[in-house]
Write a protein that binds this DNA or RNA. Sequence first.
DNA 1: CTGTTAGCGCTTTCAC
DNA 2: GTGAAAGCGCTAACAG
Lengths: 364, 364
Amino acid sequence: MTVTLADVAARAGVSAATVSRVLNGNYPVAGTTRERVMRAVNDLEYVVNGHARALAAATSDLVGVLVNDVADPFFGILASAAQTEIGRGSEHGGGKLAVVCNTGGSPEAELNYLTLLQRQRAAGVILTGGAVEGTEHTHAVADKLARLAADGTKVVLCGRPPLPPDEFSGEESALENDDAAAVTTLAFDNRGGARRLTEHLLTLGHRRIGYVTGPANRTTTRDRLDGHRSALADGGLAVTADRLTVHGDYSRASGYDATLELLRRDPDLTAVVAANDTIALGACAALRERGMRIPQDVSVAGFDDLPFSIDATPALTTVRLPLHEAGARAGRLVMGLESPPPGGVATVRAELMARASTAPPAFA
Amino acid sequence: MTVTLADVAARAGVSAATVSRVLNGNYPVAGTTRERVMRAVNDLEYVVNGHARALAAATSDLVGVLVNDVADPFFGILASAAQTEIGRGSEHGGGKLAVVCNTGGSPEAELNYLTLLQRQRAAGVILTGGAVEGTEHTHAVADKLARLAADGTKVVLCGRPPLPPDEFSGEESALENDDAAAVTTLAFDNRGGARRLTEHLLTLGHRRIGYVTGPANRTTTRDRLDGHRSALADGGLAVTADRLTVHGDYSRASGYDATLELLRRDPDLTAVVAANDTIALGACAALRERGMRIPQDVSVAGFDDLPFSIDATPALTTVRLPLHEAGARAGRLVMGLESPPPGGVATVRAELMARASTAPPAFA
DNA sequence: CTGTTAGCGCTTTCAC
DNA sequence: GTGAAAGCGCTAACAG
């Protein structure tokens, strides 16, 4: 039915070993023999069986890329950039196949996909986006990651904090420590970025600042909120922080709803800071519907600087995360094309992009 | 080093076959034996080797999803929806792994990825987005698809026209015909949607309508342009069509540039129709920079109805393609969870979404 | 219900 | 430079 190495060997009048050597080009083979083999390969339209090769050679051309949702540009950009690096050279048989897995941010789904990838003996795994903390699966994910790393799978975290050194260092943790070290991390400076953003608002003269964010148990949520809070605290506004913080799910709809809620809590709000750009869009829609002008009546700011932010009206003030660069770097790291940063952890800078959606409050 | 079936069998005191049967659960095994095996599996943290399994059972848990670029929401949404269906049931070992491949729309890259997937003996392949026509690789892609289908890989086209019946039906096309039939197609009604959109503008009273589109050799470009032209022709405006059509690359930047060019060609333009929403955003930016109001001075329309369209100011008139539904359906088709439409081809409806960015021209 | 026996298609020593 | 043979780890008849 399907053509095998043996078929090619037969047609070329050589042994299977020789065909293999020609195909892998890692061994001296006579020029004429090589030609004969290649002709047979073409005539028969032979394509190697990746599974057989993987089994025999104990290698794999799969790399997993775990994302919350590819449809979300934040992850789409990361995945796209990573994929480009991973597939690089696939014309020459060099690259690997990127398996993009949508986890919806659930540690349970992450665990499932990691197991699936482990089954395929994936060459590497990239986990993008913040982690969920405190679920029963959370530790399991960390353990699985350590396992994978120990088995030779390259693990790269992109946009999530490093693995905890060895929380449960118990019975069998002689290895665990080294394994955690084998995991490379590209952490985003969420805290610093958020801090600078809120400072920007404070500098403009805002004092009643609402904050709309995502689920409380995500590291991204926590870090950004931390940065926001610390800026407020330094401005002597620590008290308002809690009252004017609303949690949602990072969607436009939740940004819309939360903003309405914020307006109920404090009708004299002069600024709304969103934990991401998508929420900010929802906030703008809500504000506009209430007849409030941006930024004259209320300033709005986002986070991430996704492509659409520049096209919002007015253009959205936000914090830029170099997602493309980060994804590409994660791809290179997982492919071993770039050496890991010292300590295995690098922090990706977050840059304030002050645009038209923020301005001094009316009374100022 | 890594734990194998044999290790588990040894520890459980049974044969490898029994372990396999327990794991696959497709064969009767005594309760106590099963328990003993499961305990050994857990103790050893055993995870099957997917390659060995694939080789022995001649099955694969990979499904390829080819897209132009995951970072583009159009493809991100399709891929995300498809992936959800493909991975469905992976908790119970049912689902498969979706391999998302960025082809950048190049037939050459498509061919490479298809070969890579063929290597892995992928269970199925979904190709999304329009096809490029007339390259030397174009036929090769069609041939490869037929090959894959013949070898048992499910092939689904989503957003591109069906494969030509059998252009090169020559030497070995006895099979080719059936194979093409084995390919399921979910075509988008690009032509009809584009037609209705331009009719909408015509009905509003516009007569000087510019058109900004993508590369000429893409099926999507051609179909949408066809629809636009036929509407103009019916309105007696066939002549203006060519002069007021500018090709770009579907990006925001090209939409911006092309709109400026359009304005040079006809400063009295009253409407700009873009071949997708991203171009439309660029058009809006260019118009606004020229001091023209939307829609008072110039109406703007897009295509696809991507999430950001509703947040554009003013909200963008566009043509809605049910991308999520289409992607999910493609996923179900490739998994054999849904039976193919009669004839193997289904057309996905495109719906006009008339919003605030289009209005009657000023002179009307 | 369980064990034995063959491979699946390829890579890789080890000889020649 | 090339061939023969021994697996890689698993599943699938085929016996019992």
